[in-house]
Design a protein around this nucleic acid. Structure first.
Length: 292
DNA sequence: CAAGCCTCCTGCTTGC
DNA sequence: TGCAAGCAGGAGGCTT
């Protein structure tokens, strides 16, 4: 389940190879993967063919590649199961292949393919617009579909105190606030549970009942778990998440709470619990993380 | 306007 | 053995 660390691993993998490359061919095998593209698949292909790509960028779980000399970018979201993979041209199509881009760089031609089992991910060509908090900086522009997404905690311009204040105004469980991408981006179900476990905060505690100190600590734990996961190549549970070369990450071995229902809490030994929350699951230690 | 629920989607696992 | 229900969840649209 790609969250910020997994998307960043993909961005890092694309960067040296995609930057400066020219799109030579576009093949859309499943139109559903263009759900977030406003035009037809033919128009999508037409916008990309001949385009020279700049260095890939990321905000939260959104990834985009600006097109040189134009106010547009190729935007990608991996959803639940999306993958961007390098392939040799002419290689056999992998299962669930949705879109194929043939690029030409200094070292010849290669394919970047978008593979997505559950089709929650998407590719699109979108117009770059000013970021709401940096309207005069062209380098800070983001695709239209990303304008409402908050900066992520690894963004140098992320405003810690504004985040702490905004979260403490929420009348909802703290985990719902962490998952709200318009408040802070990049956090999904896995890293929300991990950061809450590290901070010893119960997922259902009301956000407006937390002290500023607790929220600052929680933010620090989000950053810590992101940084560690990034070093370990991300979290690969099943075959759903891999880097651009098809390799899994190792962070699943370092998870303390997520997916560990019934196993002892690494801190106190109490069996971890899993309970339904907002159409998904929350994993927590009933001793370390109490409601009150 | 904010909060919470529903839907999109496929494949694997579980239960009868 | 077979079939259906359950489960996984990011994000946006909808309702309250």
């Amino acid at each position: 389940m790609p969250e910020l660390p997994e998307v960043e691993v993909v961005r890092l993998g694309l960067e040296p190879v995609v930057t400066g490359a020219v799109v030579r061919a576009v093949e859309v095998l499943d139109e559903r993967s263009l759900r977030r593209h406003e035009g037809s698949s033919e128009q999508f292909a037409g916008l990309l063919e001949g385009a020279r790509l700049e260095a890939p960028r990321r905000r939260g779980k959104f990834l985009w590649v600006p097109i040189e000399g134009r106010d547009e970018a190729l935007v990608g979201h991996l959803g639940m199961s999306g993958q961007l993979l390098f392939r040799e041209p002419g290689a056999a199509a992998p299962r669930h292949l949705r879109v194929r881009l043939t690029l030409e760089g200094p070292n010849g031609r290669y394919d970047v393919v978008f593979v997505d089992q559950r089709v929650f991910g998407s590719l699109a060509v979108d117009v770059l617009r000013p970021a709401p908090d940096a309207p005069d900086d062209p380098a800070e522009r983001v695709p239209g579909q990303v304008v409402h997404i908050a900066r992520d905690p690894l963004d140098a311009r992320f405003d810690d105190e504004a985040f702490v204040a905004a979260l403490r105004r929420r009348r909802s469980p703290v985990k719902a606030a962490l998952l709200d991408q318009s408040l802070v981006s990049g956090i999904g179900n896995i890293y929300a549970d991990e950061a809450l476990w590290r901070a010893r905060v119960h997922f259902a505690r009301q956000a407006d009942g937390l002290s500023a100190r607790t929220v600052r600590g929680l933010l620090g734990h989000v950053r810590d778990v992101f940084a560690q996961a990034l070093v370990e190549g991300g979290t690969s549970f099943d075959a759903q998440y891999v880097n651009v070369n098809g390799q899994a990450g190792y962070f699943a071995h370092s998870l303390n709470a997520y997916g560990r229902e019934g196993q002892p809490c690494p801190r106190c030994g109490t069996p971890l619990r899993r309970v339904p929350f907002a159409n998904r699951s929350s994993h927590f230690c009933p001793r370390c993380q109490r409601l009150r």
